[in-house]
Write a protein that binds this DNA or RNA. Structure first.
Lengths: 155, 155
DNA sequence: TGTGTGCCCATTGACACCCATGAAATCCCA
DNA sequence: TGGGATTTCATGGGTGTCAATGGGCACACA
């Protein structure tokens, strides 16, 4: 599975196009669909982006909740309703839909930040603040991470 | 899994390149991606470095926390946002990004120190102090370590 | 006909690749 | 055991390549 990491900042041209950073494109691999799925985050002014495969995983996870339950409906609306399929052009650029641009407050530049299995797109200044705050919270709360080891690992 | 140990000091040339010590390169092995992942330590003025495989383990561990939870977002930002993928050139050198150089206060030389399953890169003078202090603290506090044995071990 | 969109090509600046050099460690053999 | 031969490594620098960016053109649709 793809792992996205690092922060990149690219220009939005006057046609509304942005280059998706080359490392992210490489992490996406050579699947049939050349592009990404993007939707507004419901918890922040950022755009969440992933590949089709991850969308299918999300679907599996949502499907695990009871059909017709409130949680199922709300999750489904939140995750799938506002999702956009954005194809790469020949140079690896995407066209940001107005709804997403507005949600993120993006104007001239777009910040791409890796989040592991997915990545996000932000207005660069806002992203900087968000990163700083997230790091501060992680440190204050003493967040630690129990490392999971693969099955072939002896320890 | 790779085990990194020892301390090495190499020169940073005027292009910002440094040779990764040969023992570390050998420990990294012949995986598909020839290089390392590096990110600023959030607890010290050092640079933490590991291989892609370790990054995937981190991703697995982060993925084990609930998607969209506060902890998940904060961890993802802290661990993945500042990570840089640094490829080796033909001579086993990496190009240190300005953000990492600044974080570590590196100028003309870089100190590499093995930390077991990862290693760190420091400004040499700072590293010397850090090592001295760490040893002093370990001695003062009488730190001990319960030894875990692998399953293949007879004893 | 005007607007949005996909496809194509040009430019430029960073950096990944290539080769050369010297020093140091290791090996080999008398 | 000593000293020459060989290999490995760290380092320096030139150059081709690729990613990001900008703009033009054709096509579709309203």
């Amino acid at each position: 599975m793809a792992v996205f990491f690092g922060t990149f900042e690219n220009k939005v041209d006057r046609k509304g196009r942005v280059s998706v950073p080359a490392p992210f494109r490489q992490a996406l691999g050579r699947s049939a669909f050349q592009g990404i799925i993007a939707r507004p985050s419901y918890r922040s002014p950022g755009i969440e982006a992933c590949d089709l495969e991850f969308m299918e995983q999300l679907n599996d996870s949502v499907s695990a909740t009871d059909l017709y339950s409130d949680a199922h409906e709300d999750l489904a609306f939140t995750i799938f309703a506002e999702a956009h399929q954005l194809s790469f052009d020949g140079e690896g650029r995407i066209l940001l839909p107005p709804a997403l641009v507005e949600h993120a407050g993006i104007t001239e530049r777009a910040g791409f930040v890796g989040m592991g299995s997915s990545f996000q797109i932000w207005e660069p200044e806002t992203l900087l603040r968000q990163k700083t705050e997230a790091r501060a919270r992680a440190r204050e709360q003493g967040l630690t991470l129990p490392l999971r080891r693969g099955p072939g690992d002896a320890s």
